[in-house]
Design a protein around this nucleic acid. Sequence first.
DNA 1: TAATGTTTGTAAATCCATTAAACAAACTTA
DNA 2: TAAGTTTGTTTAATGGATTTACAAACATTA
Lengths: 390, 390
Amino acid sequence: MKQTGDLNLVKKINKSIVLHYIRNYSPISRARIAEQTGLTKATVSSLVNELLESSLANEIGTGESSGGRKPMMLLFNRTAGYALGIDLGVNYIRAVITDLEGTIVEEYKVQHDNTVLELALVELKACIREMMQRVPESVYGIVGIGIGIPGISNGQGDILFAPNLGWTHVPLQQIIEEEFGIAVVIDNEANAGAVGEKEFGAGRDAADLVYISVGIGIGAGIIIKGELFRGSSGFSGEIGHMSIQHDGKPCRCGNAGCWEMYASENALYEAARNILNTQKIDMELLLTLAEKGEPAVIKLFERVGHFLGVGVVNIINGFNPELIIIGGRLAEAGRLLRPTMLQSLEGRSLPYPRERLQIEFSQLGSRSAVLGACSFAISKFFASTKVSVE
Amino acid sequence: MKQTGDLNLVKKINKSIVLHYIRNYSPISRARIAEQTGLTKATVSSLVNELLESSLANEIGTGESSGGRKPMMLLFNRTAGYALGIDLGVNYIRAVITDLEGTIVEEYKVQHDNTVLELALVELKACIREMMQRVPESVYGIVGIGIGIPGISNGQGDILFAPNLGWTHVPLQQIIEEEFGIAVVIDNEANAGAVGEKEFGAGRDAADLVYISVGIGIGAGIIIKGELFRGSSGFSGEIGHMSIQHDGKPCRCGNAGCWEMYASENALYEAARNILNTQKIDMELLLTLAEKGEPAVIKLFERVGHFLGVGVVNIINGFNPELIIIGGRLAEAGRLLRPTMLQSLEGRSLPYPRERLQIEFSQLGSRSAVLGACSFAISKFFASTKVSVE
DNA sequence: TAATGTTTGTAAATCCATTAAACAAACTTA
DNA sequence: TAAGTTTGTTTAATGGATTTACAAACATTA
């Protein structure tokens, strides 16, 4: 209870409401905003003028009359600034620049082994420097940098633990902010993916959704009432280590029969090794074999699809989300996984929560995390005040 | 975005802040409230006076001086009104009256077979009438009625589906409101239990907690950031039907190897039937046998404890709550279940999320749901506006 | 073409909760 | 007794939103 109510707060609330309408329903007139929000025309006028002054909105000329004076239409100025999003993978760094609506204007990807912290930081900084040179001219320049990481972060921008990189306790936000003097946001790769899909992908209309990133392992990003749920200590979404076979094979995490031992890239490759004699097994190989109609390989995918469904049912029954989005590397095989996944889903889930559930594969593909990182930066830029009133 | 900012809102926010301080830190002086909240003394004075006028706070005389004028101490007037909470079980109706702080002042329980809707409604109304006669005199009288039900409700106060009662689509809120003219809140029994423990029990200091009600089946109430999470269509918490054995025994829900087939009252009884020759197996019998040191019966409890742990690990890994509270009938056997539950928990959970997790058995016992129901009523009374600002 | 009514956006006056500053009362300490 | 502190109220100022009024721009209709 630090924040109290005063006139300043009132203005921030209303200004963010007006901006919200301009961002989401533009082109829109002052009169229409007043009508929709319940604010008076005078208030809207005053706030819109401030937004015009700060270049966040533009007037783009008159619109259609509906029997009276023509309205002056307002447009969100999506190029008032740009966001830099980075997906820091285990063996690559991917970066994009988007405008304030999340449209990609620059993209960059480099293969790099990031397991040595010092080298990774050098590469990361070089990448950021490169992107900063590519940013178009604008009023605000880069409004923030968002970074998705394959690990757990606390709320203060420190990486606590990144198992696949071997990093612990890296104050990444601080390091990058000090280097570039720009606001930085750090979060988990699955969380970033969830936000990316929520803002720019398959989840735009859902308030409660779970994004499941199926790669080497399984991670999840959980969005509740439109907001990311990070868990009490940032560890929500380790759902790959949910056991679906209590006496199953032991996992390195301590548990037995973990979901990701049945339904992940690793699970797929391990099963493939028992069938194929090839040395190098990877996604491309398996996909091409499946395309060719190799029945044993198709069976592999079907089996993984089945187990995907088993875990998804558990999420549905515990969480009752509106939407489940499946992303990550394995989502590339969506077409092969879908039938058996839906089959085990139909057979196993409770009818009521199933009824309203939508389940989709990622729309943004490998870009969901990096776009989510951009969204973090944009949100921080706008969310000087985020207010919810019930 | 219906609610906009105006002076009215500012006042509501600040008034609820002041009331919050009086409710939680009384006895407290105006000066201390001003200091803690950041509001000016003048504002606090004005708002406090309104609260005094509406009988929600009282002055109880001067306190200790700290080197100046003695402060006038304020107390929350917990007896300004009363809440009626009802736990509508499958074969009982339990009701309590509490003051505005949740202290029980009247209690009532009746055995009744509620599976026939009409009969249950008659009994429920009779119960409410009975309790209304027992309410102490007060300014506001009964401020609301909260009802916990063994089923799913939508947000509008209708019971959608109550499998163990055989009810579907009962507009219970409307029925009771029309009969008594008092605000009514309906929610699931596990949700009510979660709120009860959060407000008055083991969860008072936790923001993110999961209450697991282990009875005939397993249900859960999920509290995120201090607020109940109901899922997108009210079905969150059907976590008893999370599979912990993907190829396990089929459950009537369609899934296989559901958690509640391994770790519930039913699971316990079924296992007991294979051991004991007695006709009537119930909790009391098993508990007394275990007390007597019957090794086979003790093993039964230990086994259930183990499987409780298996499911709890899944919740921890997916949700990362601060606190897990185990309630319901089976919590009565907490002493017997705890060792094996903790054992499977220690062995199976990821170290990081486990680190900060607390796990407890219910403090309120069989009263958690009925007290949560009271809390619903009290919250509705106060939550004319609930505001959160970030 | 003129009259009428509608819609849009701005301007001026008013409202009202908070803040800031001043103050009186009550109390402790030296 | 004098000086300093703390509490809580009073008073005026502040700055948002609202209300009311109004001018400009436009469509419709006669």
